[in-house]
Computed example of a mutant assay.
Amino acid sequence: MSEQSIKLGDVCLDLAQGRPVHVIADTGQTVAEWSEANNYNLLDNYGNSRFDTTNDDRVFDVVYCSSLKSRPSKTYAYPESRLGRIESEVADAGRQVADRVVVTVLEKLFERAATDDDGAVAVLESYATDVGYADEAAEARELAEVDRIIRGEA
């Protein structure tokens, strides 16, 4: 398995049950933080305890997606150690689906920012870089510039 981390939108396996889950949120909390905030110790959960879960593991909200008839009505908070990410991106030169979404959204934002205000382009690029998407921002900005050139707007 690669070292790519779990991101919003990923499909994973619940390693305790072998069932597919869809990651709908990164809680932004560790197991210790989530446990304190929710008055429930994730380390004591039998399913989590089997996977060397630590207080430093990130916690994700997931829903089960086991069949076409599934209509998830509940989310579950699972530590990263309990989730096995399905690496569907190997069919896309290694790009995670979440990264593709980020580039697409940033590209549209760069196109709009360049149309409205060139200063907004720099602000958008700075923000994207600050939140850890420097490579995706550079790619999106380049794609937006190419689109503008093709349309004759540059």
Score class of each variant (00 low, 15 high):
Ser2Trp: 14
Glu3Leu: 14
Leu8Asn: 13
Gly9Trp: 13
Gly9Tyr: 11
Asp10Gln: 03
Asp10Thr: 02
Asp10Leu: 07
Asp14Ala: 03
Leu15Lys: 11
Gly18Gln: 03
Gly18Ser: 08
Gly18Ala: 07
Arg19Asn: 10
Arg19Val: 10
Val21Gln: 00
Val21Ser: 04
His22Cys: 08
Ile24Arg: 08
Gly28Ala: 03
Gly28Asp: 01
Ala32Pro: 00
Trp34Phe: 15
Glu36Gln: 14
Ala37Thr: 01
Asn39Ile: 06
Asn39Tyr: 02
Leu42Glu: 13
Leu42Trp: 14
Leu43Asn: 10
Asp44Pro: 07
Asn45Met: 14
Gly47Met: 04
Gly47Gln: 07
Asn48Pro: 04
Ser49Cys: 05
Phe51Arg: 09
Phe51Thr: 06
Thr53Pro: 00
Thr53Asn: 06
Thr54Val: 15
Thr54Ala: 12
Thr54Arg: 12
Arg58Thr: 13
Arg58Phe: 08
Val59Lys: 00
Val59Trp: 01
Asp61Ser: 12
Tyr64Lys: 01
Ser66His: 12
Ser67Val: 06
Leu68Pro: 04
Ser70Cys: 12
Lys74Tyr: 13
Thr75Val: 12
Tyr76Ile: 10
Tyr76Met: 02
Ala77Thr: 06
Ala77Met: 03
Glu80Tyr: 04
Glu80Asn: 05
Arg82Pro: 00
Arg82Thr: 13
Glu87Thr: 07
Ser88Arg: 01
Val90Pro: 01
Ala93Pro: 01
Gln96Glu: 14
Val97Gly: 04
Arg100Gly: 14
